[in-house]
Design a protein around this nucleic acid. Sequence first.
DNA 1: ATGAAAGCGCTAACAG
DNA 2: CTGTTAGCGCTTTCAT
Lengths: 323, 323
Amino acid sequence: MANIREVAKRAGVGVGTVSRALNNTGYVAEETRQKIIDAVNELEYTPNELAKQLFRNRNGIVGVMVPNLEHPFFAKMMRHIEMELSKHGYKCLACNTIGIVNRQQSFMDMLDRNMVDGIIACVDSLADFEGRKGRAIVSMDRNWGPDVPIVLSDHGQGGRLAAEAFLRDGCRKVVQFTAGRKSETTNLRHEVLAQILQENQCEVITIGTKWDALSYAYNKSIVLQYMDVIQEADGLMTNDIGAMSCLVVAQKMGIKVPDQLKIIGYDGTEITNLTYPELSVVVQDCGELARNCVDMVLDMIDGNEPQTMRKIVPVTWKQGGTT
Amino acid sequence: MANIREVAKRAGVGVGTVSRALNNTGYVAEETRQKIIDAVNELEYTPNELAKQLFRNRNGIVGVMVPNLEHPFFAKMMRHIEMELSKHGYKCLACNTIGIVNRQQSFMDMLDRNMVDGIIACVDSLADFEGRKGRAIVSMDRNWGPDVPIVLSDHGQGGRLAAEAFLRDGCRKVVQFTAGRKSETTNLRHEVLAQILQENQCEVITIGTKWDALSYAYNKSIVLQYMDVIQEADGLMTNDIGAMSCLVVAQKMGIKVPDQLKIIGYDGTEITNLTYPELSVVVQDCGELARNCVDMVLDMIDGNEPQTMRKIVPVTWKQGGTT
DNA sequence: ATGAAAGCGCTAACAG
DNA sequence: CTGTTAGCGCTTTCAT
């Protein structure tokens, strides 16, 4: 645990010279540099990042909040965000917000305490954003008001793609499960789906749930609870997990998919490859979402105003065997 | 961005007093305390954690390495580890190691640079552990040699539970896909399974793969590649994703599960609820694994020797519809 | 009970 | 080219 002063002493130079040599900043004679390198090796010196961080008032860490790290969609986002951050030399501090009171607030506080340089938040409520205008915060897929830039999928397009698939298959009565709060940006998919289907004389039943809790058991219980509604429908759309739950329950009850019921998953995470038939899905481009979140937050950390307050990323359709 | 000196000046006291008041350390008169609190509020002062961290030479962060944050098992571990760390006031720095060269090494370096107080590693190779004896490193499920304490599931028991299920169902020929390197602790499950089955006149075919890459596509391609072998078998065990891939492919080919083929998943992540029939699985207790990893690493951060170099956590059997 | 002062380990400005 | 010095913002003796 040698420090820079010991290295300097051993090399017979001043600490400033050591710092310059090690950081390649400013001039240092080749001979001197070599003496310093030797001293570093002999002492097994490694710079203390904590001291650098204090000096710079930065620590190169971005906090990433999601409701649940285990949820396939958020896990995927987290993977992409972490890799993208690492490309830029940043580290990723991960945080589950569900199930821990005040977790979100304490995470936001870390910005003030300089424990993170910025935050990417994929969570619902806007708790404690007040007074943090100008801080490096980017929201993923949730509207936190006019002061927080948001990166999100084109859910209007998502709703349209799903509607077109249902119409293509001649559906007359489609059920959709919505998640979380009304008036969320993410509910646009359901509004667009309903509008397009209704314009085409297809009935739409919209059922509100709180899937976001991501209890697989809860998902299934909801499906079971509404099974009578589903049985009378010929189409269904909800998030991946919900859709897969429906598929399983429908199969168990002898409903033929896709003959009697078309099912569309929203998100398109990898797990939708693991059913039979494979789920037809609207795919969110997590790589691109992550890239935009990271670019924006790093730009803000550098002190710039957000280039845009709203970045929309296209979604794609992936045909499976359930439509 | 007021600092402690400005607060002190405003309150008309010394910085030491402010520090003591804010941290409840040492005496401070009620009247003085109040003046300080007022100053804090007026200035909207928040302590700079970076400075505290330098002083303590700790930052309250534990690095957690996994191959892939998106893999259901590692995502589950990450969730549990993060929640467990947060219970103890620690933060979780997440890291994907797959697909980025030298990622693991640079993560290990962070220990030396004081960028993390400790590391929980769920990765294969032992790159760069050399010379770090005594550092706060805990390994999850991988043997990194005698100097690194390890927390792992009782894979012997896991193999036994699976074997018993196959025998109960009268299997005569069981295929198992092994993942990653030979001689891994995790391969014990396959050895025990093979031994028990063979003792009971049940043939065992062991096929080595590199599932760990966690490409769902790769999983499926492997299953397809060995489909002729699988078709002649009446039992199959591999990790959750592999097992689900098999289930899908088998169903697609008209193989009846579980009548013609019994399938057992190893890990027991939530996604195994999402097939029909639900997968029968050996469940790893990620909560308990996480608790032990965290307890050990925090203990080591406190400067203690590991209480044990090997902590084994029981697994459980969960009966699904595929056996 | 409190203020002054000495660091924590590093960087950067400044004078030579 | 290099050594010295003054901080970064905080905590903690140590007198008083």
